[in-house]
């Protein structure tokens, strides 16, 4: 019995791996990826403009790492990772149904859950890579005169990990939304820039109903200056709880996406 289950698990993981390798390789070449890769360079351009302005105006009283931390919260945490997760997460299932290519996958000896998990993993890897390149370049540009300070790299690593966790969690949520709804992008936009951006500022435990609350709880709350309002009213959860909640949300929505995709009937071409 145990041997049989182990064999089934290994077959399932092998299926996930195969789906992952196909869609990671296809995703890398896709036009959509190239467009979003360029889009993810928006904060890099902003970082470049800020640094350029600092150097040529001679006003470099604000530290690069301070600007970098604000860039992470303003552009990455509240905007870019949501956009990347939304467009790649929902496309895990919707591009197969809308493109009518689902039939090529569902007539293979692999389970539908393996399709969802394989594609989710491939697309999450892609968006994490896209985000990491942008974050690294922004960091290097903004701290170009302080690159010998190794304590700054700890901040870079922490921010990349938090944003990575955010992408893992949001992409899982949007994978579920994509499998569940037809107009998933609209619902996703409402969730991202409506729910997530409003509920996080509610006092008390209400803000715990947003994913961004747990991500912000992993960042230092002592943010000050012009963008301090972004941490306004944040009543952070403990780090352990935040990581556990992000993990739990990811697992729940991935399981729901797998169940839904396996049970739902997708009628193509009619």
């Amino acid at each position: 019995m145990i041997q049989k289950n182990t064999r089934r698990l290994s077959f399932f993981l092998d299926s996930v791996k195969n789906v992952y390798s196909i869609f990671f390789s296809m995703g890398r070449r896709a036009k959509k990826t190239k467009i979003f890769f360029l889009f993810s360079f928006l904060p890099v351009v902003i970082a470049f403009i800020i640094k350029f302005n600092q150097i040529f105006s001679g006003r470099s009283n604000v530290q690069g790492i301070y600007i970098f931390s604000n860039l992470i919260v303003v552009f990455y945490l509240q905007f870019l990772i949501l956009i990347l997760a939304l467009f790649f997460g929902t496309s895990v299932t919707s591009e197969e149904t809308e493109g009518q290519t689902l039939v090529y996958l569902t007539t293979r000896p692999i389970s539908k859950s393996a399709i969802v998990l394989g594609k989710y993993s491939a697309y999450t890897t892609l968006v994490i890579l896209m985000m990491s390149v942008g974050v690294l370049l922004s960091f290097l540009i903004l701290n170009v005169n302080n690159l010998g300070n190794f304590s700054l790299y700890k901040i870079l690593l922490r921010d990349v990990v938090v944003l990575g966790l955010g992408l893992i969690c949001y992409t899982a949520f949007f994978t579920f939304i994509g499998a569940f709804l037809k107009k998933s992008i609209i619902v996703g936009l409402v969730f991202s820039f409506g729910w997530e951006n409003v509920i996080q500022y509610f006092p008390g435990s209400t803000q715990r109903f947003s994913i961004i609350h747990y991500l912000k709880s992993l960042l230092p709350t002592s943010s000050s200056g012009r963008f301090s309002f972004l941490m306004f009213r944040l009543e952070p959860s403990p780090i352990g709880t935040s990581i556990f909640m992000l993990f739990l949300i990811t697992v729940i929505f991935l399981c729901l996406a797998c169940i839904l995709f396996s049970q739902k009937e997708y009628i193509l071409g009619d």
Binding site: Q100, V103, R108, G269
Partner: peptide, 27 residues
């Protein structure tokens, strides 16, 4: 083996990539 009626593909793939990718799913 199933050949669908709809004329839809992963258009950014080559013919070779299309066939080999789907074969990989057969382990």
């Amino acid at each position: 083996g199933f050949c669908p009626e709809q004329d839809f593909f992963y258009d950014e793939m080559t013919g070779w990539q299309f066939v080999t990718s789907l074969l990989k799913l057969h382990h």
